Simulated scan of single mutants.
Amino acid sequence: MNEVLVFFRVDASLKIGLGHVMRCLTLSEELQRRGVKVIFISAALEGNIIQLINDRGIEVHPVVSNTLKVDYEQTKNVLNNYTSKYKVLIIDSYIHDVEWETLIKRHADLLISIDDNPRFHNVDILIDNNYKAEMITFYKEYMLETKKLLGSPYVLVRSEFIDYRKKDIEQDLVVHIFFGGADYKNYTYLYSDKILRYIKKIKVHAVVSNTFSYEETLRKLKSQYGSRFEYSISPKNMAKVMENCRIALGAPGTTTWERLAIGLPCAYLATNSNQIPILREIQNNKLGIYLGEATKETPLEQVQNFMQFIKNKDLQIEIAENGKKLIDGKGSKRITDFIINTLQGRK
């Protein structure tokens, strides 16, 4: 498919996090494997990972995204600088709205949005890979002419999370803690400290990215707890880190699907109120447990409930098996197939 150019309009920052870019990189790997050239368009925000994208050999065009009008003009200019039979633009953003899409649509042959927040779009294909997204009433009543790829079959996870699938829950009690790469509220430190203090026979492996601003607090934990606490910064293989842990604690996001794919049972804390409905759904379907909203006070009740989860090996096994059944790692392939088939149908 060397007659196709796929552009990704996606950002990362301290506040946005890294998840949007990481799932687009996962999809881009499959597109490149099929011979499709990919180009990223990304705002140079504080905490961006433009260099990481470049390091993967992908062309990136930085933009200034201070207003949607400026953003549109710069994105349009990038698209118009290239010639190809088909130009596909994939947007993964909560900021870009239907008006922006309507403007940019004139400059792309196929416009796609990845968005797990049900709202109006003016795109050709909408991807919402949230759990049970296919059941959302909004999608059944609106945008009826838009092609929709909904639910867990379209979850974007890298292949290593399937390759490293856990086979044994009987491991040393190491807790994988991850609240997003940037974790600008530093829940990583707060919850690591709390559970190490109150749960004596436990070890913690915390993960952050190189955009994390509080490494000195993690060094403090290492000094205080010694071999009971380890941390990794932007590990090259997150799946390998997860494989060596028995249970997880953290926030939802792209990592939710990675935990499920590899079979790592997780206790979740909401870092944003819009995460609460999906976390309750995850708990109701035994894909994890929900401890409540993350807070700097780290309530003792949350720690006690996490202790009960640690003791319940039957529930851990059930969650791990349910996750592996739900996420098969073929989301990138399904989406790429759909894009290519859609373009071929236009010949």
Score class of each variant (00 low, 15 high):
263 G>T: 07
223 S>Q: 13
204 V>Y: 08
281 E>N: 04
210 N>K: 15
215 E>D: 08
251 A>M: 06
206 A>I: 06
229 F>N: 06
212 F>S: 10
212 F>G: 09
245 C>E: 09
284 N>L: 07
251 A>G: 07
254 T>P: 02
254 T>M: 08
290 Y>M: 00
281 E>T: 05
269 L>Q: 01
221 L>A: 10
263 G>A: 08
248 A>W: 12
204 V>D: 15
272 N>E: 11
275 Q>T: 11
246 R>T: 13
260 L>Y: 13
284 N>I: 05
215 E>I: 15
288 G>N: 04
281 E>F: 03
219 R>Q: 14
224 Q>W: 04
259 R>K: 14
281 E>Q: 08
255 T>C: 02
279 L>A: 08
271 T>V: 15
228 R>I: 03
274 N>F: 02
220 K>C: 04
254 T>Q: 14
210 N>W: 11
250 G>P: 00
221 L>F: 04
269 L>T: 02
216 E>A: 13
215 E>W: 04
254 T>I: 04
247 I>Y: 12
214 Y>I: 12
289 I>K: 01
256 T>I: 02
210 N>Y: 14
235 P>N: 08
260 L>I: 11
233 I>P: 07
202 I>S: 10
221 L>T: 01
251 A>N: 03
261 A>P: 12
230 E>I: 04
277 P>D: 12
201 K>H: 15
252 P>A: 05
273 S>C: 02
288 G>R: 00
230 E>M: 06
273 S>E: 11
258 E>P: 14
207 V>H: 15
289 I>N: 02
204 V>Q: 14
245 C>P: 00
228 R>A: 05
253 G>I: 00
231 Y>F: 15
251 A>W: 00
218 L>P: 03
219 R>H: 14
266 C>G: 00
232 S>N: 14
201 K>G: 12
227 S>K: 14
216 E>Y: 11
226 G>H: 11
243 E>Q: 13
254 T>V: 06
230 E>K: 15
290 Y>C: 00
249 L>H: 02
237 N>Y: 07
257 W>E: 01
270 A>N: 05
273 S>G: 04
244 N>F: 02
226 G>A: 06
243 E>W: 13
258 E>H: 12
225 Y>E: 12
277 P>G: 12
231 Y>I: 00
274 N>E: 11
234 S>A: 12
217 T>G: 03
276 I>Q: 05
271 T>E: 01
274 N>D: 14
217 T>M: 09
243 E>M: 08
283 Q>M: 09
235 P>T: 07
233 I>D: 09
221 L>M: 09
212 F>V: 04
221 L>I: 01
269 L>W: 01
229 F>W: 07
223 S>C: 08
288 G>I: 00
286 K>H: 14
245 C>R: 01
220 K>P: 04
227 S>A: 12
274 N>I: 10
227 S>C: 06
232 S>F: 14
228 R>W: 04
210 N>M: 04
224 Q>Y: 11
225 Y>M: 05
242 M>A: 02
282 I>F: 00
246 R>A: 06
238 M>T: 10
210 N>L: 05
290 Y>T: 00
206 A>V: 07
274 N>R: 11
237 N>R: 13
248 A>C: 06
212 F>K: 10
285 N>C: 03
261 A>R: 13
267 A>C: 09
207 V>N: 13
271 T>Y: 05
280 R>Q: 14
247 I>R: 09
284 N>Q: 15
284 N>K: 15
246 R>P: 05
208 V>R: 10
